[in-house]
Amino acid sequence: MRRIVCTVLLWMAAGMTALLAKGVPAGTEISNFATVSYQMDGVSYSTTSNTLSDRVDQIIDVNVVWNDASPVIVANGDIDKVLTFKVTNTGNGEDTFTLLYSADAASDFAVTDPKIYIDTNNNGVFDPSIDNEAYSLTLAAEASTAVFLVADIPADSYPSGSISDNLLEAKSTIGGSGTPGTVYPDAGVDGVTAVDGMNGGVDKQLGTYEIGSELGVSLTKSATPESAEVATGTLIQYDIAVALQGNGSVENLVVTDPIPSGTTYVAGSLKLDGVALTDAEDSDEGRFDGNAVEVKLGTATQTDTLPFGRMITFEVRIE
């Protein structure tokens, strides 16, 4: 009877530590024991083994993701532009991570005055008056927090599409060697052994700023039938006026227009600024691919004194 009581209590002791959904927390005790019952001279006996207790060691790991869906659009001279990252403690024990910024050499331009802020109020959005500037972050096992990189864009004249790649690194202060499997005796929570996990206890991710286009491209399309009464066989001329709004340059400007259903493109009718273009894909700007007309305008530039404007025309016949 006494043995049974003992067994039950041991089970309870083993069950006291909270179980997490993923990965048993570092420091948890894993207990094991076995019992044997047997017969000797027709008498039943029973005995219990020693109780093993293995403590769960700490896996150290961290994951950094860049949370903006696409490059953050900025303008030359902007200040306090924000890149949003998420740092997750993917280990099984509490850890403090050092946060480090570095510029990626492959960038078109470098930001100035980069600062790192932690999402103090945990709302996922940068709040300048609430969130704290910090370069270390303590996270419980499986916990994550948004981290913001806040930087200024140089007051220069980088063309639209120029990018600036910026790295945010989070590195464990318990481990963080970068080599999975590196062991740190007694360094984990409650003095357990700590081991660098899959990422080696350190991770970094790129976030991107992109100089936005200050230009708008506008297309104005009009249709002119050859006669007031539109019927089968009627010829319609389409005009597409291409213009820019704002000053600057747009690269690789291509205008594509599918032929309306119920009409047939009139072979050889495509023109740019009144100059005929062949339907084939060749050295001139235009072509008809069987479904749509396409005109490649290349780089389009507009200044106050040199406005940009092109006119594309083509004809279709009603079926």
């Binding site: 209590l9 047997y38 006996y45 005995t47 219990t48 020693n50 109780t51 093993l52």
Partner: peptide, 24 residues
């Protein structure tokens, strides 16, 4: 608890000559 278990263990061992040891 441990002492309680140990005492139980010792009592069992005295009763018979079979013992069981667990290793991980």
């Amino acid at each position: 608890l441990l002492y309680l278990c140990l005492s139980v263990l010792l009592t069992s061992v005295m009763h018979a000559e079979i013992s069981i040891t667990s290793e991980s």
